[in-house]
Design a binder for these strands. Structure first.
Lengths: 166, 166
DNA sequence: GTATATTGGACTAAAATAGTCCTATATTAA
DNA sequence: TTAATATAGGACTATTTTAGTCCAATATAC
């Protein structure tokens, strides 16, 4: 249902990789080590750099590294960096002129949900993502029932919420 | 960052509308009352019908109504119905052959987050979404920082998490 | 100076989303 | 039985987003 994009998932893999590197790590190394295509890695590293999650050095011996400790980077940070601050509502902008406004009272609840989700995202750090006990394969669509089930079967690790509403 | 689709938002508006209708409500009425284009309303009502959230009657005097009490319909139900069970991971499928698997250890954390989010979604019912104290305009991208800020400014209702990571 | 890297942005291709429309079927009421 | 009203199902197009690639410019180390 809700989903993270493939690039965000790749980005997470890259960040996790960087938590394991002591020194500056060029994009080519990251690509080689993660198996993600170099152009894609370059693009992601640039994006992550702009958001301040990683820092870079140009030139020979240059590369990228985390700009703060893995423990201080949350899942929310990663999503903000890679999925952009594009959470703008169509009708909450400056020149808002939503023709549904008078009939609409559903938006508020999504705010409530938003807050809860944000909390969950702030609660998970990159350090936890690195945890080797999690042996899941690359996941880029995680937030749905089918995915949970499939991965339960695959890994038998999730103590997931069984979602069957009467 | 994470976002719900426009159609999901519309669908929520429609469901909220139906909570206020005692009798069968034809698509044309829903469209007229919500301001959403009729073809779109028809499409959404069909989808919601298939998922079992609403029930329908054909023919003259026919229409749609909720199939259970608003209190028994959760946000998770709505998302499952409208965004589909498309939460399938690229590399957790049957013929999984993810070339990153050996290098990837980031997937597990998303599961953790998934569980937390799912909890949040199960916790909000359609009855709460209907609450008239929520006077937000139609929202179809809610789960990001910018959106929260904008809507804070607009409504001053959210006691949101101020998200500034050091 | 040369090789190594990042930076920034343009660009294309692919996929998901949004929106529309048509035909078939069921129901009610006159 | 006919006419009017509605949903059911699906095909279809257009738009937008996402994914992925590439190039020229700039900075650094040796």
């Amino acid at each position: 249902m809700l989903r993270i994009s493939k690039l965000t998932d790749y980005g997470t893999v890259i960040l996790v990789h960087l938590t394991r590197q002591a020194r500056l790590c060029p994009a080519s190394d990251v690509a080689a080590d993660t198996g993600i295509a170099l152009p894609t890695v370059q693009k992601l590293l640039k994006t992550l750099g702009k958001s301040g999650l990683i820092e870079s050095a140009r030139g020979a011996e240059g590369g990228y590294r985390l700009s703060k400790a893995p423990h201080d980077i949350s899942a929310a940070d990663i999503l903000d960096a890679l999925e952009g601050p594009l959470a703008i509502t169509e009708c909450s902008g400056d020149d808002s002129s939503c023709e549904h406004e008078s009939n609409c009272s559903a938006g508020g609840a999504w705010q409530q949900i938003n807050t809860a989700i944000r909390k969950a995202l702030l609660d998970v750090s990159l350090a936890e993502m690195r945890n080797p006990s999690n042996e899941f394969p690359l996941v880029y669509r995680v937030l749905g029932e089918a995915g949970v089930q499939q991965q339960n079967e695959a890994s038998e690790l999730i103590t997931g919420i069984s979602k069957d509403n009467p």
